Amino acid sequence: MQLLRLFMEGLDTVAYWYRSGRFIPGILPLPANALARSGYVDAMCELILNSRLPVGLISIGIQTIPEPCIVNACNEGLLRLRRLGILLHCLNFSGGVDELHWIKEMQLEGVHIDMAQIRERDLASDVLSQLRQSPYSPTQIYASNIGLVKDFENASTLIADHSYGGLMMSPVSRHQMLQINDSRIAKAIFSLHPHPNPNLNGDK
């Protein structure tokens, strides 16, 4: 029940942005053992359908690849979610052979690579090339946990499609985000841009 409650809160956050006129996708992390249980998957499918959110706004983040004993059940659960238009992400990619095989088998939409781990050890270039094996692959690389300028350089070397972390922006709540957007500073910056059409007085 705790897992489903957190899942509902995640859906509510995505719906909050959507109702505010912002098409912001959300990644909801889930453990692999929950995805291997049909009861959880049934409940999540019902919650997703009841949310009535557009396709592409909800992603499931798999924290670790499933153990061999539950991999078939987990894959079946993920495929059921994918039929509802849910995108699939691997959140903690470490470069293992088993991870690569599973990512390619499931054709995940996103792979998140921790830049702190890249600093501590080299991730083989052939591993990354396998992630980008086909130009038509749906998999995109996310450089996560960017905390140093060196992490930006590593993300550029990886040719990451997306980057995020504390150096770029510290975590904020959705209410803080709206306050930033509605602040006087934001309005002042916006007012510096010329308006496309003059008003009746001829002013820009």
Results as ranks from 00 to 15, higher is better:
L3G: 06
L3V: 09
L4M: 15
L6Q: 08
L6P: 05
F7A: 04
F7N: 03
E9H: 04
T13H: 03
T13M: 11
V14R: 00
V14P: 00
A15K: 10
A15R: 06
R19E: 13
R19C: 10
G21T: 07
R22S: 09
P25I: 03
I27M: 12
L28M: 08
P29Q: 06
P29C: 01
P31A: 05
A32S: 15
N33V: 12
A36H: 00
A36K: 00
G39P: 00
Y40F: 15
C45A: 13
C45G: 11
N50Y: 07
N50H: 10
R52S: 14
L53P: 08
L53E: 09
P54E: 09
G56M: 06
L57D: 03
S59L: 05
I60R: 01
I60E: 06
I60M: 02
G61K: 06
I65Y: 04
P66N: 07
P66E: 05
E67T: 15
P68L: 06
C69A: 14
C69W: 04
A73T: 04
L78R: 00
L79H: 10
L81N: 05
R82K: 10
R83L: 05
R83S: 09
L87W: 01
L87N: 06
N92G: 07
S94Q: 12
G95S: 06
E99T: 04
E99I: 02
E99L: 02
L100T: 01
H101M: 13
H101A: 15
W102N: 05
I103M: 13
I103S: 04
K104T: 05
M106C: 10
M106G: 02
E109Q: 11
E109A: 02
V111P: 02
H112L: 03
D114Q: 06
I118R: 05
E120Q: 11
A124W: 06
V127Y: 00
L128C: 11
L128S: 07
L128A: 08
S129I: 08
S129P: 01
L131W: 06
Q133C: 15
S134M: 13
S134C: 14
P135Y: 12
Y136Q: 12
S137W: 01
S137M: 08
P138G: 08
T139H: 03
S144L: 08
S144R: 09
K150C: 08
D151R: 03
F152E: 04
F152K: 01
A155V: 05
T157C: 11
L158Q: 05
L158M: 10
L158W: 00
I159D: 14
A160G: 01
A160I: 02
H162K: 08
S163H: 01
Y164P: 03
Y164L: 11
G166T: 10
M169D: 03
S170F: 10
P171Y: 13
P171N: 11
R174L: 13
H175T: 10
M177R: 10
I180S: 05
I180M: 08
R184W: 05
I185Y: 09
A188D: 13
S191K: 13
H193P: 05
N197E: 13
N197L: 09
P198K: 07
N201I: 02
G202Q: 00
D203N: 04
D203P: 00
